[in-house]
Design a protein around this nucleic acid. Sequence first.
DNA 1: TTAAACTAATACTAAAATGGTGTCAGAATG
DNA 2: CATTCTGACACCATTTTAGTATTAGTTTAA
Lengths: 131, 131
Amino acid sequence: MKLITKQTDYAVRALGYLSGRGDTFISSGEIARAENIPASFLRRIMQVLIKAGIVAAREGKNGGVRLAVNPATVRMIQLIELFQGKIELSDCMVRKDICPNRRTCALRTKIQQAERRLFQDIGKTRLSELI
Amino acid sequence: MKLITKQTDYAVRALGYLSGRGDTFISSGEIARAENIPASFLRRIMQVLIKAGIVAAREGKNGGVRLAVNPATVRMIQLIELFQGKIELSDCMVRKDICPNRRTCALRTKIQQAERRLFQDIGKTRLSELI
DNA sequence: TTAAACTAATACTAAAATGGTGTCAGAATG
DNA sequence: CATTCTGACACCATTTTAGTATTAGTTTAA
Ligand code: FES
Ligand code: FES
């Protein structure tokens, strides 16, 4: 069971790389080489980050990407949800119609507690704290 | 992103069912029917629980399964690891040889913190607390 | 003005994890 | 000895994750 997938991992590394580079545009290719990430895979990841407004892109020669926001405002939970979707419990807690004993489920309560903690720990961690 | 898969979920429900039934052996089929779980799937799940020593089985007619331990001694973390494997971070933290910036990785620290909490919240939760 | 170096967008394949089914053998019981 | 169970697996389906490729369009610099 993995808490963090490759995509999220790569995204963090790429953002870390960018954060050391100020306002210049860096090509995805360079990042991929430097961080040992498959190039086309990283491009797709960058596009997600771009659409999310976390990095800005510039097309054409000498183009590339750069941070669009202060690393201190980017939280891990944002990245995790971006690439892994919202943190859910198990299906029975989502699809209310299926589960018979949903109302009285103690596990649900417990897990929601854990979820809240997850948000506090990794979730609220800022990108700037990681680099 | 799911923290708990169907298998773990089903296992918890089945154990919950058993815990209300004392020392009698209950057939997997009955549990499956009662809890709305695909029968053959549950059988496979039970075999895991049996091998783990959490339930005991009795073969033959009028056979079935029953709890082999006190529900208070079964922890969620045990079930999760049984069906979803050990909680890992991302690969880079496991395969030491691959990741370049492993030593200084702040994310690793953060996530280990979160992991510890996860253990505390869902992990240490006892089966007996859920039923 | 055109080749090179980029991003945009998206379709595609591969591999792994999860969910679920089926079968055949053997044990207990009535 | 038929029935009702578990044991032990092999098998298939679905979903998620990982990774590749392709075609189009933008910018720059020689
Ligand atoms: S909500 Fe479905 S078992 Fe708890
Ligand atoms: S250990 Fe690999 S990026 Fe942190």
